[in-house]
Simulated scan of single mutants.
Amino acid sequence: MLEIDIQLPELFEQILDEHYYEVVASLILFLTIVVLRLFSNSLPIRKTVKMPAASPATVKLKSTLRLLIPRLRNAQTKDTALSMSSRREMADLLRQNREASARIRTENIIATDVTVELLELLELYAELLLARAGLLDIRDKNIKEGMTDAEGTGLEEAAASIIYAAPRIPRDVRELGLVRSLLIDRFGKEFAQDAQDNKSGLVPKRITDKLSVEPPKPELVQAYLEEIAKTYAVDWPPHREELQQAQNEVDDEDMDDDDEGGAKEQPIPANGAAPSTPRANARDLNLGPLPPAKQPNVEGSKSPVSVAPPKGTSENPSPRVRLPGGGQVKPQEAKKKEGAGGLGAPPTVDDLAKRFSALKR
């Protein structure tokens, strides 16, 4: 025994020397496991929420929805084809100038198009219910436990829309009535009564507007007829293309005039007088002052162009006239030239009175 006790430390030393890193890693792993076991008992147990098994009512609803969706698509295809054939008939009526009959029958086309749009909305709601049918069981469980229903699922809006629209839709879709009955059983009679009368406003406005019994507006009928005539190359209203072409030509001419900078026509006054023509400004035409009659130049010969002597100002009391040759004319010489038949001083009031009396004679 003594030999064994003496040999044990040597054995451990030999193991540590040969397998040092393995021993250290094993100790760290052992300590980690011990610590995790100690703290695992103090941590709260996290419960996982599992999706409950689908109830028989949910299974039946999903199977009926799978039948309803293709029926709604087929109904849309049939109504669309009927609308297209009716449009051709309206085009023939417009060619025959039977406008009154075409307007009345166009209301049926509008009603058919509205029905197609309504069926498309109901198809979307049916697909929503089919995709989220599993949430119905959770909703029923929350109601039984007294918990508030989860918001934002869209189940109530989809169910209320189908319950509201099924008895009012002008189309025979058998599966739609079956889905409506299943939804009433699932959501309850109070919810069904509320959705039927739309008291809480669960049914969106786009559904209620499409189920309205009011006739279409005359503007809508007119727009439909014009679109049909345009699609099938019918001249309606009469000479519509000629009027449109003439209007386009007038617009093009106006645009060309504006681009070329042409003068626009002056408006005619209300009193019947001739329109006044705008007077051209001398500055705009780059013209100098007109030459005075019989004004000699400095050398004594008549010049076709002459310059009136400038008037004195407070900044330049004695201005001078510069000649093309570089010479200058003094104010005294300019006054002498004025006396010889040139440009004189400004006329006085007496001179103007004499001229006016001479003109009267």
Rank of each mutant, 00 (worst) to 15 (best):
L155F: 00
D351S: 07
L285R: 09
A270D: 09
V321S: 05
A282R: 04
P317Q: 05
T148Y: 06
S83I: 08
P310W: 01
R132A: 03
D209F: 10
A159K: 00
L136Q: 12
L182T: 01
L118G: 05
E214D: 10
E117P: 02
V221D: 05
R355G: 11
P317N: 00
R87K: 11
L343E: 04
R180D: 09
E99Y: 07
R98L: 09
E13G: 04
S55F: 01
W236V: 04
R88I: 10
Q7C: 03
V173W: 02
L82V: 10
E249H: 14
G300D: 04
W236G: 03
L285A: 09
I15N: 06
L16M: 07
R73A: 10
L124F: 07
Q193R: 14
Y232T: 02
A81I: 08
F356W: 14
G188P: 02
E190G: 06
L359G: 06
L67A: 04
Q328C: 07
N297I: 07
D79Q: 14
A233Q: 08
K360V: 12
I138E: 14
Q266V: 11
E175F: 01
S26G: 15
M255Q: 11
I143A: 13
L129K: 02
L119M: 10
K62I: 11
E22A: 13
A358L: 15
Y21F: 07
F356G: 11
R37E: 12
L135Q: 07
V49H: 13
A131G: 04
L68G: 01
G177E: 10
A293P: 10
G201C: 02
A358Y: 08
T106G: 15
V24D: 06
I28M: 10
E227I: 09
D251A: 15
L128R: 13
T348N: 04
S357G: 11
P218G: 05
Q328L: 14
L11F: 08
I169E: 06
A102G: 06
D185F: 02
L2N: 08
